[in-house]
Nucleic acid binder design. Structure first.
Length: 538
RNA sequence: GCGCCGCUAGCUCAACUGGUUAGAGCAAGUGACUCUUAAUCACUAGGUUCGGGGUUCGAGUCCCCGGCGGCGUACCA
């Protein structure tokens, strides 16, 4: 891409009043500096190469093996061995050690490093000079044979090489690498080149999502895709992003959850479905929250929340198996044991056990308020005993739960999509899986009574009308679906990013999302200003 | 949102209580070098100290405003 030429000129006149935006002149000057500096360094080499008939960006290269395969096949060779096996490999030059008529270089491909041994005696003076003229960061293809050096380093003895892509920008420092978090997130491509931990987290994320998918398929679940653009807000409580469809002439939400469309598919008879997909919440950004994140939701007809507990344990255990052979991980300085079974305890019992107080959604609201007064927990006048019970749990208990624990039977008042508990109508059949003080999964025996569901939607809509931006809409189409009959169903949602955080021992969600949401970088093109949407900020 | 901390060469970092011309390593350029491993050695070049204003004889350093980031805190996964 030609990043110098497009961005500045096109937004004629906008932003003059703001003062904080770089002017087009400043951006042009910055681009000028870049070009001036780089032309001195490497663009000159490009020109020279082209003049000499060498294409610095050729179209294809045929490789026969990789660094890892060579290491695996020949890792046991004695020092000073040469074998007559021809290989062709490709990768990025990461280190160069030139010493006259002999050069060593470290080539890295996706498996890792392998040393290149380049000798004038083998390839001649001209080719060796061309090799020494390469820059750290260049992509090259190499043909050669397998050897070990006198000190035993497995190497490819280079018989010939081809430049595959010329690097114009210098890589970060070879020893300290790239540490600036802002640059690491904005230029993840450089982070991945330089930092083994970035590659490790990326690898575990890829592997985790793949394992979850295959585990569920193995259990008879079908992967489906619901709509991202939706006209009603529901399935969770969160502020949505709003966008606009020009041809249809209406505003749309970006989904905040996967739930309601998956359950429509249960109504349609798909029986066991799941989706791993991106959801969007227009809320704060911090160590554990990104505006877009990846959710897993699973629905199983004829099951209940007990089945979901078993399934949740199975998913986590299966995902952890490769990454954590002993099922243990140190997170936040504490060793967590992810081996099932996990403790199962009701919210009311945990409060009693940990805090020594008796509070539950069935008790008179005055009595519940006294409990909160005694504990020093703040509450609002319109909360019932259910919400008060939940407040005690949220404020004083959840963050203390370290080892994996299913917290069961949340008050009905805080669980609009869960089915009332079979033994106690003030509770629901719901659980949250809490690990290291954070909620990793949330599940219900799903509510399938359309009349009850409509009532709960209307309660939420009333809250929204009173200014609660996180409250959902009345989704009458969903109610209509339930009226056609949804079988008894267990459903579960799990944050995939948080699962990866857990498996990698990473405290920040931005480390496990390859491209976390950041403020736009000035001068890089695209949207940089706040343009009020058709409905403004909800 | 709020609070605290940070931003110095392409990268990683120095620069005392405000005091000459802002230093070093790596990367880059030139040269030497046939077994290196962050190769080594010599020389060269590289800076709007995040931006703007202020205090001062003098500001990378102090003050104010703004930008970007990190962490903490409140709510959501």
């Amino acid at each position: 891409m030609d990043d110098a030429s497009d961005a500045p000129a096109t937004d004629g006149g906008a932003g003059a009043a703001g003062g904080s935006e770089p002017t087009p002149e400043e951006e042009a000057a910055a681009a000028e500096d870049f070009i001036a500096e780089q032309r001195h360094l490497r663009l000159g080499k490009l020109d020279a190469m082209r003049a000499a008939g060498v294409d610095p960006y050729p179209v294809r290269f045929e490789r026969t093996t990789t660094a890892g395969a060579i290491q695996a096949a020949h890792g046991d060779l004695q020092p000073g061995t040469e074998i007559d096996e021809k290989v062709s490999i490709a990768g990025r030059l990461m280190l160069m050690r030139r010493q006259g008529k002999l050069s060593f270089a470290t080539l890295v491909d996706r498996d890792g490093p392998i040393q290149l041994f380049v000798s004038t005696a083998v390839i001649g003076e001209v080719a060796h000079h061309d090799f020494d003229d390469l820059d750290r960061g260049d992509w090259i293809g190499v043909e050669g044979t397998i050897m070990t050096t006198r000190r035993g380093e497995l190497s490819v003895k280079v018989a010939g090489f081809t430049l595959l892509s010329k690097t114009i920008r210098p890589l970060p420092e070879k020893w300290h690498g790239l540490t600036d978090t802002d640059t690491r997130y904005r230029q993840r491509y450089v982070d991945l080149v330089m930092n083994e931990n970035a590659r490790r987290i990326a690898r575990i994320r890829i592997q985790t999502i793949s394992r979850v998918r295959h585990y569920l398929e193995g259990q008879g679940f079908s992967e489906v895709e619901g709509p991202v653009l939706q006209s009603t807000q529901g399935g969770a409580t969160a502020r949505p992003f709003v966008t606009h469809h020009n041809a249809l002439g209406n505003d749309l939400y970006l989904r905040i959850a996967l739930e309601l469309h998956l359950k429509r598919l249960i109504v349609g008879g798909l029986d066991r479905v799941f989706e791993i997909g991106r959801v969007f919440r227009n809320e704060g950004v911090d160590t554990t929250h990104n505006p877009e994140f990846t959710m897993l939701e699973v629905y199983q007809a004829f099951g209940d929340y007990n089945d979901m507990m078993d399934l949740t344990e199975g998913i986590i255990a299966d995902a952890a198996r490769d990454v954590l052979p002993d099922m243990k991980v140190t997170y936040g300085g504490v060793e967590l044991n992810l081996a099932p079974p996990y403790r199962r305890a009701t919210m009311v019992a945990l409060i009693e056990e940990e805090l020594g107080v008796d509070i539950n959604p069935a008790m008179p609201v005055e009595a519940a308020r006294k409990v909160l007064d005694g504990l020093g927990v703040a509450y609002r006048a319109d909360w019932g005993s259910g919400r008060l019970t939940n407040a005690v749990y949220d404020e004083l208990l959840q963050h203390k739960i370290v080892q994996p624990t299913f917290v069961l039977d949340h008050p009905r008042e805080v669980s609009p999509l869960a089915r009332p508990h079979r033994d106690d109508p003030t509770l629901t059949e719901r659980f949250e899986l809490v690990i290291s003080g954070h909620e990793l999964a949330n599940a219900y025996s799903e509510l399938n009574d359309p009349v009850d569901q409509l009532q709960r939607f209307e309660d939420e809509a009333a809250a929204k009308a009173h200014g609660d931006a996180e409250a959902g809409d009345v989704d009458l189409d969903y109610v209509r679906a339930l009226e056609y009959g949804m079988p008894p169903t267990g459903g579960m949602g799990m944050g995939m990013d948080r699962l990866v955080m857990l498996l990698t021992g990473t405290p920040s969600i931005r480390e496990v999302i390859l491209f976390p949401t950041l403020r736009p970088e000035p001068g890089m093109g695209g949207l940089t200003e706040s343009t009020p949407g058709p409905r403004g900020d909800l």
